[in-house]
Design a protein around this nucleic acid. Structure first.
Lengths: 112, 112
DNA sequence: CCCTTAGATAGACACTTGTCTATGTATCTA
DNA sequence: TAGATACATAGACAAGTGTCTATCTAAGGG
């Protein structure tokens, strides 16, 4: 059984333009928080917030080194997203509505 | 140049568990609004709202027939999403940060 | 040992969003 | 033509979110 709300949280993390830009930046490789900040106009606490959102759902990894935080993408999580999208967009044997359709047919048979 | 905010709106549409479930339902084929509603506990105006969100970003198509609305997935838009995700998650020649890195190198040369 | 720097946290605030009830509109049918 | 049905719209409201300023913590460097 799919937990749609749990999956929705992943897309919630992706539903901000600044966070998409952060991902784009990290696609070139690991980068320090203060370097990432240079790409934006917002303040340091705001970046801290965005990085927390991305890290909490597992899309971004943190490597702490002294007073620096080095961030990088977790591509495994990205693959998870693709697999889930594939699952909900394409027809499948265990589709949620097949179950209902089957139940309707059975009910119709009972009435007859 | 990528418009991150525009793309973020697509993920905003996907950032609700009920809407993900709607997509999952539609993956089996076209379905009428009142049939979709049977899968949920919320009211008809709420479904109307969710379908509007999905239709406005182009993920779902509407075929009006008398008083019925038949909804179906627009897989082309889905492909767009995959392409965009691929673009921001994987390293590329025109990466946003390469431009910056290049600028830094040039600046360093000037100083020398 | 102080000062600087990297980052986190707290609290405030405007804005957005998901949901509801109430009501409107358009289509079908007896 | 009157009622029923499918869907949309308006307005309200609680909860969530992105941003800020102010402040705190911890690590480095003179």
């Amino acid at each position: 059984m799919v937990n749609y709300n749990e999956k929705a949280n992943v897309f919630k993390a992706l539903s901000d333009g600044n966070r998409l830009k952060i991902i784009d930046i990290l696609s070139c490789g690991e980068r320090c928080a203060c370097k990432i900040l240079e790409f934006f106009d917002f303040t340091q606490p705001t970046l801290s917030h965005h990085m927390k959102v991305l890290a909490e759902i597992g899309l971004v990894r943190i490597r702490k080194e002294g007073k620096w935080n080095h961030y990088s993408l977790n591509l495994e999580k990205y693959e998870d997203i693709l697999n889930f999208l594939d699952h909900i967009f394409y027809e499948k044997e265990d589709c949620i509505c097949r179950v209902i359709d089957q139940a309707e047919k059975l009910q119709a048979q009972v009435k007859v």
